Simulated assay, not measured.
Amino acid sequence: MKLGFVGTGAITDAVITGFMKSRSDIDSIVVSPRSQDIAARLAEMFPRVRVGSDNQDVVDSADIVFLAVRPQIAEEVVKELKFREHQQVVSFIAAVPIESLTSWIGVPVTITRTIPLPFVAELRGATAIYPPNDQIAALFSSLGASVPAEDLKQYNLFSAASSLMATYFGLLETSARWLEAEGMPYDQASIFLKRLFGGLSHATDASNEQSFEAMASKFSTKGGLNEQVFAEFKENGGTKALTLALESVLKRIEQR
């Protein structure tokens, strides 16, 4: 199997790192020379990775081409490339529909949209895929899990949910700054919160429960402090604000 990556940013870095940890059936990976530092580092770290002379070299050398460029330049980059008929194309490009990519490519290819997250580098990702594609799903399953979307609406919902990462860190930062304001050194607060939330993440992975509400009950004593914080968070508009933000993000995704 020969892979090529047009665009060499943080997600390409994470995906290739994960593939090199998890796959022995990849003969070669060619990356575009853009983002020279990342491309050179990947080629130095992994013997199966080389830096292509340009983006067309990437496409010519690959069975599966991964498009990992910014949406703002996607049309310009893709239209310049010549793809082979029936080549596999995997798009990481946010909010660019398959119809647009098909028009820009101009020859019949198989296009799959995906949402890889940074954790694929540690084989802990959950990558949404649309439309379902067994070969691409198998690739991303080796990076943690692949989650095929049943339709475009579900894929857009996965995309909206993936926007929660900054909010997660914002919750940690707000908590750390509150502890600091109450007299605890920020570094100490940071260590404690990392361990607390890291433990919760592990417990979530290990749980057989499907409902997060059921998981919460296991960590909340009736009338206790955990129950109080969530109740006040909800009463003060926390859950409503989160729901409204997700609805706003979904609307933005669908309008594009």
Rank of each mutant, 00 (worst) to 15 (best):
Thr112Ile: 14
Leu171Ala: 12
Ser28Ala: 15
Gln255Lys: 15
Leu42Pro: 07
Asp63Trp: 00
Thr110Ile: 07
Glu75Leu: 06
Arg50Ile: 04
Asp54His: 13
Ala10Gly: 05
Glu44Asn: 15
Gly199Arg: 06
Val147His: 03
Leu242Phe: 15
Asp205Thr: 11
Asp25Val: 07
Asp13Gly: 00
Pro108Thr: 12
Ala40Asp: 13
Thr127Tyr: 00
Gly106Ala: 08
Ser175Asp: 05
Ile38Leu: 05
Val6Gly: 11
Ser207Cys: 11
Glu76Val: 11
Ser190Leu: 09
Ala121Val: 03
Met215Arg: 14
Gly7Asp: 06
Arg70Pro: 00
Lys251Glu: 14
Ile93His: 01
Lys251Asp: 12
Phe5Ile: 13
Val147Ser: 05
Thr102His: 02
Lys79Cys: 08
Ser162Pro: 03
Ser146Tyr: 02
Leu200Asp: 01
Arg113His: 05
Lys2Leu: 03
Phe92Asn: 00
Val59Trp: 01
Tyr168Val: 10
Ala161Met: 14
Ala176Arg: 09
Lys79Asn: 04
Val51His: 06
Lys240Gly: 00
Gly198Leu: 04
Arg84Met: 02
Thr8Met: 01
Ile129Met: 13
Arg195Phe: 00
Ile105Cys: 04
His86Val: 08
Glu173His: 10
Ala10Tyr: 10
Ile253Asn: 13
Gly106Lys: 09
Glu247Lys: 12
Glu76Trp: 03
Arg48Ile: 04
Met20Arg: 05
Val59Met: 01
Glu99Asp: 12
Asp187Thr: 12
Gln87Ser: 07
Thr12Gly: 09
Ala145Ile: 03
Leu244Cys: 02
Leu67Phe: 13
Glu150Phe: 02
Ile26Met: 02
Arg195Gly: 11
Val229Leu: 14
Ile129Glu: 13
Gln87Asp: 09
Ala40Lys: 14
Phe230Gln: 10
Phe212His: 07
Ala10Val: 13
Gln255His: 11
Arg84Tyr: 01
Gly199His: 07
Ala166Thr: 14
Ala126Phe: 07
Ala128Trp: 07
